[in-house]
């Protein structure tokens, strides 16, 4: 679904990741793990088309994203960043509907079909009852769910999330990771999310991309050696 072909990313002279290759497929939940400053967020931004790699290409469904227009990329990949945005008086329903932007005309007016997709997205993340609440009244967990609904409404085969479980308590983290797991398996989405919660990565994800030095190591989350490999990359004993 999404393929990294010999990608090098970094800032100016500083190389974060050099000549990396990896693939994430349809219906697959991939956890991106690595230490602070290892390049997780930058990699996600490159995959989203927000930043260009220093070299190499990213292809989605066989098409190089360099050759796609902004709108075409927006119909292939959705992006949810880290941190929290507070917009007073923006209802959750309207926020979710913003996800329909790549599919609506220049006025942004929603068709019946767009509305149905937004409502379904709210339903899937279990936030239908919160649709008329404003986003500045949400808890961090509720906010994450609404942002997932917004990304889901964008109706893209690839979904990227930068630290969706940050700032959440343990049950909250499991709930969010559970939703992502469901979206991958039931909706057939190709989901890549970065996280510092290695337990969640191993438990919920199908695949782990470990950023180690300037390399990326792609492993099956269920493989017995994965945990050990992550531990050694983080320089700690046992996870």
């Amino acid at each position: 679904m999404i393929t990294l072909n010999n990608i090098t990313i970094g800032y100016g002279r500083k190389i974060l990741l050099g000549n990396i290759c990896a693939t994430a497929g349809k219906g697959e939940l991939t956890a991106l793990v690595g230490r602070n400053g290892s390049g997780k967020s930058t990699l996600i931004r490159v995959l989203a088309g927000l930043e260009k790699p220093l070299s190499g290409t990213v292809s989605i469904g066989g098409a190089d994203i360099e050759g796609l227009s902004k709108k075409e990329i927006a119909r292939c990949v959705s992006f949810t960043g880290t941190g929290r945005v507070r917009i007073p008086d923006l209802k959750c329903r309207d926020l979710t509907a913003l996800g329909r932007a790549p599919w609506t005309g220049w006025t942004g007016i929603l068709s019946e079909h767009d509305r149905d997709i937004s409502e379904r997205a709210l339903d899937i993340v279990g936030m239908q009852d919160y649709a008329d609440r404003c986003m500045d009244e949400m808890s961090d967990g509720e906010y994450q769910k609404i942002m997932i609904a917004r990304a889901l409404a964008q109706d893209t085969p690839v979904m990227l999330f930068d630290e969706p479980t940050a700032f959440l308590d343990v049950p909250g983290r499991h709930q969010i990771a559970g939703i992502l797991e469901r979206l991958a398996s039931e909706e057939g989405k190709c989901i890549i999310f970065s996280t510092h919660d290695i337990g969640i990565a191993l438990e919920k994800a199908d695949k782990v991309w470990l950023l180690d030095g300037d390399r990326i190591v792609s492993m099956k989350a269920s493989a017995p050696e994965t945990a050990g490999r992550i531990s050694s990359a983080f320089g700690i004993d046992g996870i």
Partner: peptide, 12 residues
């Protein structure tokens, strides 16, 4: 409103 990253990845 959501910020430039969100606007750009929504096709703006």
């Amino acid at each position: 409103l959501l910020g430039e990253s969100y606007a750009a990845t929504a096709g703006t």
